[in-house]
Design a protein around this nucleic acid. Structure first.
Lengths: 341, 341
DNA sequence: CTGTTAGCGCATTCAG
DNA sequence: CTGAATGCGCTAACAG
């Protein structure tokens, strides 16, 4: 049989109420009684049942975290920030890895609602279609009615007045900076390896790329825009395709660092020297990036910090702080250089 | 007010029990009634309370995962395996990042016991001291009395007959393979960057290193053994110290890939060419390793697979499978070569 | 097929 | 200061 408050009470020769008072330490209890109870707790190795407690309080102390893939360093780094902040506040984090599949994502949100999570943090790119957005908005309302904030990290609100708050990451602006850096070095034939098609982050970053080229009077050669899926391997394949296409280019802007790493691998295998023959730039500045060869020029996004902020929003009833976009910063390393004359 | 079973029942004009039956779909209900109930559920956006359920069942559907640092790719990769396996079984994973601090680790285990986790998976190195081991063993007994297995990944049982099962990773043997590889290339002055002092994984790997040298008749030069903390930065610093010491060495065996990456960075900065002047080998084969420059020679541990297996053990009442160590494999890339004559 | 009852483990009244 | 009683939301027995 499980040991409960009553078991402890019996052993200590007191009522369950008294045991509860000792445990929660929020009510006067005679010192001697307290000692007896504490002894019984120890001897029985009693552990309170969080569910019984949650039933009473309608809160669980749990923060839900839903992301695309926990083993991806972009998400891993954000998750690191979330866990650190939550741990400091004695909150448990329930982390769910959705594989980027909307169905799974919603299934997890539903589970978290069942768990009466105090707040839910959703990280990563979203599909654009309205059906998806409607459903997400509905979950936002549902969570709100449970007093649980929905926090979106690095993605927009599903609708104008959706019941959610965001921790914005400036994908478009970052992509602009990355592309502008290449242009300022003198590149004009700039390829782009985009992320998963139809996802907000991919589109934002691609838009930054296109707009910056346009602003510089450089027409976009559609043959130089290929899609990956944000994974390293897809970057490898995309770079291979770019090479095989025979279309001329002097630089590649990858939609994230992982794909940039894959592209670097392809170029190395193909004997294409970076940055002498091709410059490569990414986005995110995951920890890996400084260790690549050559060191990857990229745009640093404040991922850990975003995780911290997400936690405070997930616990704040009213997000009084306006969603000012967190900063971003071009990090120039060794993978970019002026094009060869 | 929160919407409960009773709310739904009232709206559908049936009893709470009937609503429960519809929801759980485990009992005959008239089609018409069912429809009415489903309609009410939808209209009220009702979501069952997992805590009320867990109170009845004494199980929660939750798997606890405690690791040192979620943003470290070693743990991230294992966590990826855990999440994938758990997701396929419709289990939530509560992931806790303990910073390797035993106090925090125990606090998290306690929390997970309160949550009545179905099983708890503990990943990563442990301190050796007996106080720690006693306490862990006690938690193992406590979890067992809650019918929740304690699964240890990559670390030994705290005591002979501890109430826990393990998913062993063969640290010592892997270190032996790494060291033997260097010796077979002709190296005799081999440095070692050990992991966090006093931790099982560090010690196992260091032992593999020492034993292999001894078996080859090579005396260990204690000046060539320095400690890090498994983090990249500590590898950088350790390699720097090795260089500054002025003691001669032709190869470095790092206690994990992250520290190896740091060492590579130091050598690059110092103009020491790898592998021409110094060979470097790591352990783990995290995804990063193949992208380092030069590609890192290392020993691959089946991290994702370990995550999978941990989940099945965490859910199996009786671990019928005995803990056969998962394999490991030397991956020779470009960071090792014979010493310069 | 459906409703009624009871109780999971706990914290909180309200009485002593 | 302490105990008895109540109910959080749900499901499993037991009756209809």
């Amino acid at each position: 049989m499980a040991v409960t408050l009553a078991t402890v009470a019996a052993r200590a020769g007191v009522s369950p109420a008294t045991v509860s008072r000792v445990l929660n330490n929020n009510y006067p209890v005679a010192a001697a009684t307290r000692r007896r109870v504490e002894k019984a707790v120890r001897e029985l190795d009693y552990v309170v049942n969080a569910h019984a407690r949650a039933l009473l309080h309608a809160r669980s102390g749990i923060i839900g975290l839903v992301l695309n893939e926990i083993s991806d360093p972009f998400f891993g780094t954000i998750a690191g920030g979330v866990h650190a902040a939550a741990g400091a506040l004695h909150r448990l984090v329930v982390t769910c890895s959705s594989s980027g599949d909307p169905e799974q994502e919603f299934a997890y949100i539903e589970m978290l609602r069942r768990q009466r999570a105090d707040g839910v943090i959703l990280v990563g790119s979203a599909p654009l279609d309205t059906a998806y957005r409607k459903q997400l908005a509905a979950h936002g309302r549902g969570l709100r009615s449970q007093q649980a904030p929905l926090v979106l990290v690095g993605r927009p609100l599903p609708s104008r007045h959706a019941a959610a708050v965001t921790v914005p990451l400036d994908h478009e602006e970052s992509a602009r900076d990355a592309t502008a850096h290449l242009i300022s070095l003198g590149h004009r034939r700039i390829a782009h390896i985009a992320g998963t098609p139809g996802r907000t982050i991919s589109l934002d970053r691609e838009k930054g790329y296109r707009d910056t080229l346009a602003a510089a009077g450089i027409p976009v050669d559609e043959r130089l825009v290929v899609s990956g899926d944000f994974g390293r391997e897809s970057g490898r394949i995309a770079a291979r395709a770019l090479l095989d296409s025979g279309v001329d280019f002097t630089a590649v802007f990858a939609g994230n660092d992982l794909m940039a790493a894959g592209a670097l691998a392809t170029f190395r295998e193909a004997g294409v020297v970076v940055p002498d023959e091709v410059s490569v730039v990414g986005i995110d500045d995951i920890p890996l990036s400084s260790d690549l060869a050559p060191g990857l020029t990229t745009v640093r996004l404040p991922l850990t910090e975003a995780g911290h902020r997400a936690v405070s929003l997930a616990l704040a009833p009213e997000p009084s702080v306006r969603p000012a976009a967190l900063g971003h910063e071009l990090i120039v390393r060794a993978s970019t250089a002026p094009p060869r004359p």
